[in-house]
């Protein structure tokens, strides 16, 4: 939009006058005719038929994550990064069952931070097959199906998640009209250090509400609309879900 020059005072006054006129006019009319009210508006939309098919709920895919192995620096002849299956090293290597810290890792995976209760690595990782995870009852689960793994120890959050009140979503509230995409626990929580990471907030408002206040009411104030506060851009909002629902999500979500 071309930025029009600020409206000259005279025009603003004119605009204002029009309002006063209309306002007075309306009051006068009500006073004299004693009637008001408008029509009913356009007819309501019909809801979808009962039992209409529901569009699916899918998990938002994870772009990183071990999936078929550990990311390496190598590229294959198509230029695609090479993943090393976890088993390429771990088969034949004795699992360290008691390990529960990142700092104890000296030979490999150095720098991994572990701040998740006192869980040992092999509470979640599967000593029989490092390319999978495991539930408490030893059932193996693939890396891209983590909801149950997390849910077994975090019942309340899993329940809330299943009822749409934890974990967020994008898409349709009315699934007769379109699909929905859900985040997975690890989109927001690093499994090794799951505390939600803070952020620098987005730009603050610069409206008149703020002019005479460190936060309280300012509704009566007539100042200029812009007080020119400095912009400070939104920092990296790591876990923000994508704006457009992803179309190629792998798994079918619950609910």
């Amino acid at each position: 939009m071309p930025h029009p020059p600020a409206m000259p005072a005279a025009l603003r006054l004119a605009q204002h006058t029009r309002r006063v006129v209309l306002w007075t006019a309306a009051l006068a009319l009500v006073a004299t005719a004693g009637c008001n009210g408008a029509g009913d508006g356009p007819p309501m939309q019909k809801p979808s038929a009962k039992g209409a098919p529901l569009h699916p709920v899918t998990y938002r895919p994870r772009l990183s994550g071990p999936g078929s192995g550990l990311q390496t620096d190598l590229k294959d002849h198509h230029g695609k990064p090479v993943k090393a299956p976890c088993r390429s090293c771990h088969d034949g290597k004795l699992p360290a069952r008691k390990r529960n810290t990142g700092t104890s890792l000296k030979a490999f995976h150095v720098g991994l931070t572990m701040q998740h209760g006192r869980l040992s690595c092999l509470t979640c990782h599967n000593a029989d097959n490092y390319d999978t995870l495991r539930l408490a009852d030893s059932t193996p689960v693939p890396f891209d199906d983590l909801m149950q793994l997390c849910g077994q120890c975090h019942g309340p959050q899993k329940r809330d998640y299943d009822h749409g009140s934890h974990g967020g979503m994008t898409g349709y509230w009315d699934r007769t009209k379109g699909p929905r995409v859900r985040n997975q626990c690890v989109h927001c929580h690093d499994p090794h250090a799951p505390a939600y990471v803070g952020v620098v907030p987005g730009p603050r408002p610069k409206d008149r509400f703020l002019l005479n206040t460190s936060g309280g009411h300012g509704a009566g104030d007539h100042g200029a609309a812009d007080h020119g506060a400095a912009d400070h851009g939104a920092a990296d909002h790591g876990a923000a879900p994508p704006k457009k629902p992803a179309t190629h999500a792998p798994a079918q979500g619950g609910h």
């Binding site: 985040n183 927001c188 704006k243």
Partner: peptide
């Protein structure tokens, strides 16, 4: 039938 923009944008999932 879509979600409001503020809900979709919430990175924490606080909105229902």
């Amino acid at each position: 039938g879509k979600m409001p923009a503020c809900l979709e944008a919430c990175p924490t999932g606080a909105r229902v």
